[in-house]
Amino acid sequence: MNPQKLSESVLKKIQKENITPTGRWYFIFKNIGFWAVFNLSVLLGAVGVSVIIFAVLETDFDLFSHLRGSGWSLWLSLLPIFWLIFFVTFSGVALWGMQHTRKGYRIPTFRLLGLNLILSIVLGFVFYNVGGAEKFETIFAENVPLYKSFHQRRNTRWMHPEEGRLAGEILELRKNKILILNSFDRSTWTVDYGTSVIHIPFELQKGHKIRVLGTQTGKKDFQAKTIDLWRPPRKMPFWGREEREFFPRERKPPRDGREKSL
């Protein structure tokens, strides 16, 4: 086949089969599509990061010395493995999307991964701070079968008075450092906190949601060793998002932040 013949045969084929060039819009939309995949995956990755932050901050690290079971299984039960997989998956999809954009192949893979990681972490912190992580996780738990939310799992962990863990809302404060607690599984407990350490920077009040580590001394009696707020107020490192909803409505915590024991 000589050059003349090839060009002729190509033109002949084009004309005979009426082959026309694909429209420019197709390629523009294709490129936009890959960019959209990248952006959406970064956003979803950021959601994953925000839920991971939420899960880490929800973890009661003081429980480790009290929980039964082997160390590894405990760690695994507390790690947000699902969300780690979620984040890694969407990081991979983001990488794939970017590499398929018109000039994405020019960026080295490690740089793309780094960019994706930075964007996801920054957006993840933003998402967490505006309360998106908790909402997303709740919606996810409500709609995905077999998935238990961190709240549900945490509640379950603290509903074991026989293993020294109890949590609920204070119904009443009595004399001699006795409080009546309505646990989250709706049982009423009498808690003696006379010898306990209270990690709360203000006086206990009716309506406080607390978690108690100690010993079950009777059918519905509990001797407290330590008392913490169910969800302590916390601030994120970049800007403050105080979770005031866990304080009684009629009184805010004092500003000096002193630790008081009753």
């Binding site: 190509v10 084929k13 084009i14 082959i19 026309t20 060039p21 694909t22 420019r24 390629f27």
Partner: peptide
């Protein structure tokens, strides 16, 4: 030949 037909189809890319 297939290469050139493909080039023609994708020329606007």
């Amino acid at each position: 030949q297939e290469v050139f037909v493909k080039v023609w189809k994708n020329l606007r890319e």
